[in-house]
């Protein structure tokens, strides 16, 4: 064995860590989308929801188009 093993390993690792990091925003977007949906549905009686979160040219683009007939009842006020 020679010094190459550690070096090759480190190089491969570096690439895989980068790849993981690149995919990470995509995963986070999925989570964020479902959280936003959850919040909107908590407050509004939605009739229509169009929620888009995409990465366009390295930027995050969030588009929400939603319709609601009314705000959800918040129970009895003190």
């Amino acid at each position: 064995m020679n010094f190459n093993v550690a070096e090759i390993g480190a190089n491969r690792l570096e690439k895989v860590l980068l790849k993981d990091k690149k995919e990470y925003p995509q995963r986070i977007c999925g989570i964020l989308k479902s959280e936003m949906k959850f919040i909107l549905e908590n407050y509004l009686e939605l009739t229509n929801l169009n929620l888009n979160l995409e990465i366009v040219d390295g930027e995050y683009e969030i588009k929400i188009k939603a319709k609601a007939k009314h705000i959800k009842s918040i129970g009895t006020l003190p």
Binding site: F3, N4, V5, A6, G9, A10
Partner: peptide, 14 residues
């Protein structure tokens, strides 16, 4: 020492 595992410094850097 024989370079068969990734060095401490490299792990910290990564």
């Amino acid at each position: 020492l024989s370079g068969e595992i990734i060095s401490i410094e490299k792990i910290i850097e990564l």
